[in-house]
Design a protein around this nucleic acid. Structure first.
Lengths: 166, 166
DNA sequence: TTCGATGCAAAGAATTTGCACGCCA
DNA sequence: TGGCGTGCAAATTCTTTGCATCGAA
């Protein structure tokens, strides 16, 4: 019995700055340079990942495309995601024990982290420069180089922590 | 093709303070209070989790017990872990796309985080009060209550970042 | 024309569930 | 003795792979 995760990355205090709208073009270019041909399914998957910037499951991608009237095979979703992972164009985010979630990785290094609401299960994205700086310092304290980091919070989303201010 | 994860939580600069050796007793007490009977399999699983303080998979627990000559059914491992999760006695740590890993949660609130070595796949535990403090402040900046947090780093372990100091 | 991209179906891995028996309280 | 705990086996869920065909360069 897993809670359905709802994307809810709006209405939280720390804002994600606008991302370049052409991540999918960037991804296409990377793949083309690597000698990959283009294909309809992949292009459509890239479009979905570009539009929905945050943590989609393979099934959600499949359903989004079916909803648009251009269904694709689930195996293709996984294969494309695997290819994108291999090229560092998406990353796998572990927000829970259920299905894996994937989101686009932007070449400018911008990224965000997630909070899972323990009440409603929604997923909230946030971006916090001070946390990033602290993790940089942590690398120094550990004496180990850190290539990548992932922070997952569990708490209440804005909607669930009683709208006293509303 | 997943790298075998090796527990390697020794030899890093930030030390885990000694944990109370009787987490398993604590867990037994919690379960007893909740009306659960005792059972051989569960006691042995608790012993393993108490001894190996860091991030075991269900299969590793099963194998540890088989190695001790007291094999148990894998289903029992999952059932016991589910029970422990429900009581907050263990937590699931997501270190990668493969099997889930579980580790004991101590009643005193002490906890640590993990770094996965991108070279050898080993898992390094670390404990960093300043990071904890920063996450507390983050809660304030977000304006959202945070119940729990998880930090996963990817980088090099001590053994893999060239032993120049050796 | 050649080789990658895709769909379909089957396989595989991790986890969960059903059911019967055994043991603890 | 009643009900939880456990083992075995089957079922589910998520993901990967095999193979034939389609499409891009």
């Amino acid at each position: 019995m897993r809670p359905v995760l709802i994307l809810a990355n709006a209405g939280y205090p720390v804002t994600i700055t606008t991302e370049p709208p052409n991540w999918s073009e960037h991804a296409e270019a990377v793949l083309a340079r690597a000698g990959h041909q283009r294909g309809g399914a992949r292009e459509r998957i890239l479009a979905v990942l570009d539009r929905e910037r945050c943590a989609l499951t393979a099934v959600e991608i499949e359903e989004a495309l079916r909803g648009e009237g251009t269904p694709i095979a689930r195996a293709s979703v996984y294969r494309v995601l695997e290819l994108l992972l291999a090229h560092g164009l998406v990353e796998r985010v572990a927000v829970g024990p259920g299905q894996a979630r994937f989101e686009s990785v932007h070449p400018d290094g911008r990224h965000h982290h997630h909070l899972v609401c323990v009440h409603c299960g929604s997923l909230v994205a946030f971006d916090d420069p001070e946390l990033e700086a602290e993790i940089d310092r942590l690398s120094g304290r550990l004496g180990l180089p850190i290539e990548h980091h992932d922070v997952l919070l569990r708490g209440s989303c804005r909607g669930c922590c009683e709208p006293a201010a509303g």
